[in-house]
Amino acid sequence: MAWRCSGASNRELVENLFQNGLIESPRVKGAMLSVDRAHFCPSPNTAYLDTPQSIGHSATISAPHMHASALESLLPYLNAGSRVLDIGSGSGYLTAVLAELVQPGGRVVGVEHIRELKELGERNLGRSQRGRELLSDGTVEFVVGDGRRGWVDRGAPEGGKEYWDAIHVGAAAGEVHGGLVEQLRRPGRMFIPVEDTSGLDQYIWLVDKDKEGNVNKKKLYGVRYVPLTDPPR
């Protein structure tokens, strides 16, 4: 049904996703309505298509239905005051929507291994008054780093262990990296695309850590993401 969800405006796109069941929660719907996807896409003429689009540096902004799926999957951990790590933040779109879902008092850090993409996310978010506020008050921050190692945020314990309520990974990993699991809180959840052992297919995995620290991994559905790679030299 995803191909039917394109719209002529941000509102029409989100309403179509909602009507087709790709957005289920009113909270996710409201957050996506509040962030204009056109501010994060390379062309305003294609901003409201339900398709992935290139943003340069072999990266893409994912299709809106994939962003909706990630948000719905992480929603139980996206509450007021939650801390969220967005690895492979790219255009900055999902980072912005995540920030809306954790207010008041929440924080979202977008990690990019390419400085130009980190700066792109900042510029895109700064195209709206709301986005400029999120950047200026520190609610959203974009940083350069190797997302496979997570991120030790300011105020986090040494090693960043058990700090993030939710982790979103926006590029396909070769494995569910143990360091990311360590950085999940008790309880916490990670949404991550992972390549299978053949290297030909990718699947979304949900990784949950419960209050006792037990970890459960659940394989969901097949996807096609750009790879989570080494930084350019």
Rank of each mutant, 00 (worst) to 15 (best):
W3C: 09
W3G: 06
C5D: 09
C5G: 06
G7L: 07
R11P: 00
L13A: 03
V14Q: 00
L17A: 03
F18W: 13
Q19K: 14
E24Y: 03
S25M: 04
P26M: 02
R27T: 08
G30H: 01
G30R: 11
L33V: 01
V35N: 01
A38P: 02
C41Q: 14
N45I: 02
Y48V: 06
Y48A: 08
Y48F: 15
Y48M: 06
D50T: 03
D50R: 01
T51A: 15
T51W: 11
P52Y: 11
S54N: 15
S54Y: 10
A59I: 05
S62P: 08
A63Y: 00
P64K: 06
M66V: 15
S69T: 11
A70R: 07
A70P: 06
E72P: 04
L74W: 05
L85H: 01
I87G: 00
I87Q: 02
G88S: 08
S91M: 04
S91A: 12
S91L: 04
V102R: 00
G105I: 06
V108E: 02
V109F: 05
G110N: 05
V111L: 05
E112V: 08
H113G: 00
R115E: 15
E116M: 07
K118V: 13
E122L: 13
R123E: 14
L125M: 15
Q129F: 12
R130I: 03
D137K: 11
D137C: 12
G138F: 09
V140L: 07
F142E: 01
V143T: 09
G145E: 01
D146I: 03
R148G: 13
R154A: 15
A156E: 08
P157H: 09
E158A: 14
W164K: 02
W164M: 05
H168A: 12
A171N: 06
A173S: 11
A173G: 04
G179Y: 02
E182Y: 07
P193A: 07
E195A: 11
T197Y: 11
S198T: 15
G199N: 10
L200E: 15
Y203C: 03
V207K: 01
V207T: 01
D210Q: 09
D210Y: 08
G213V: 11
G213M: 13
N216I: 10
N216F: 09
K217V: 14
G222D: 10
G222P: 09
V223N: 10
P231V: 06
P232H: 01
R233V: 12
R233C: 04
